[in-house]
Each structure stands twice: as structure tokens, then as C-alpha cells.
Amino acid sequence: MQTQCWLVEWAQFLTEELDDGIPFGEKMATPTAKLSDQFAESATLEAEIKKNLAGLGYEL
């Protein structure tokens, strides 16, 4: 019985926390845009690192 009460309380907490009135698509727009920028930066840095390693005689 104690476990059931805990689960009900947890479910209520999650519902309250997740339902802030902002549509999910709007919430995801900012983090996905940031992630896209980070992926682009990562690709640029990876290319630069490979170039520098090649200059030292190490090919990847």
C-alpha cells in the first residue's frame, strides 16, 4: 500500500512539473537549435584536429 501511495504522489508531481502550458515543440526548439550549432562546431573542430594531426604525421 505504501508503494502505491508513493507512485500516485510521484505521478502527480510529474504531471504538475511537465504540464507547464508550453507546447512540447516550442520547448524543444531552443535545445535542438543549440545542439545543431554544437554539432556543426564539433565537425569543424574535428576537421581541424585531423588536419593538425596529419601535419604531425598521424593520419586518422
Results as ranks from 00 to 15, higher is better:
Ala33Phe: 12
Ala33Gly: 10
Glu16Gln: 15
Glu9Tyr: 02
Ile49Gly: 00
Glu9Ile: 10
Asn52Asp: 03
Asp37Leu: 15
Ala40Trp: 11
Ala33Leu: 14
Gln4Leu: 12
Glu59Gly: 09
Leu60Val: 01
Phe24Gln: 05
Ile49Asn: 01
Asn52Leu: 06
Trp10Ala: 12
Leu60Lys: 02
Glu48Met: 04
Ala33Trp: 10
Gln12Gly: 06
Met28Tyr: 01
Trp10His: 08
Leu53Phe: 02
Tyr58Phe: 06
Asp20Thr: 12
Glu48Asn: 07
Ala33Ile: 05
Leu7Tyr: 05
Leu14Ile: 06
Lys34Pro: 01
Val8Ala: 07
Ala43Val: 08
Lys34Leu: 15
Glu9Phe: 08
Ile22Ala: 03
Ile22Pro: 02
Glu17Trp: 13
Ala11Ile: 08
Ala43Glu: 07
Gly21Phe: 00
Gln12Lys: 10
Gln38Cys: 13
Tyr58Val: 08
Leu7Ala: 06
Leu35Tyr: 11
Val8Pro: 01
Thr30Cys: 04
Ala11Asn: 09
Gln38Phe: 12
Thr30Leu: 15
Thr30Trp: 09
Glu16Phe: 13
Glu48Asp: 01
Glu9Lys: 03
Leu56Arg: 04
Ile22His: 05
Phe39Glu: 13
Gln4Asp: 14
Trp6Tyr: 10
Gly57His: 02
Glu26Met: 07
Trp6Ser: 06
Leu45Ser: 03
Leu18Tyr: 07
Thr32Cys: 14
Thr32Lys: 13
Glu26Cys: 06
Ser42Asn: 12
Leu53His: 08
Glu59Thr: 02
Thr32Asn: 11
Asp37Ser: 15
Ala43Asn: 06
Lys50Trp: 01
Ser36Tyr: 13
Asp19Phe: 12
Glu9Asn: 03
Lys50Asp: 05
Glu26Ser: 06
Tyr58Thr: 00
Glu9Pro: 00
Met28His: 00
Asp20Leu: 09
Met1Gly: 14
Phe39Ile: 15
Asp19Val: 14
Thr44Cys: 04
Leu14Tyr: 07
Val8Asn: 11
Trp6Thr: 09
Phe13Val: 07
Glu17Ser: 13
Pro31Ser: 12
Phe39Ala: 11
Gly25Pro: 05
Gly55Gln: 04
Leu18Arg: 10
Ser42His: 14
Glu46Trp: 02
Pro23Leu: 03
Gln4Ser: 05
Trp6Asp: 06
Glu48Val: 03
Thr44Gly: 08
Leu18Trp: 11
Glu26Thr: 09
Leu14Lys: 12
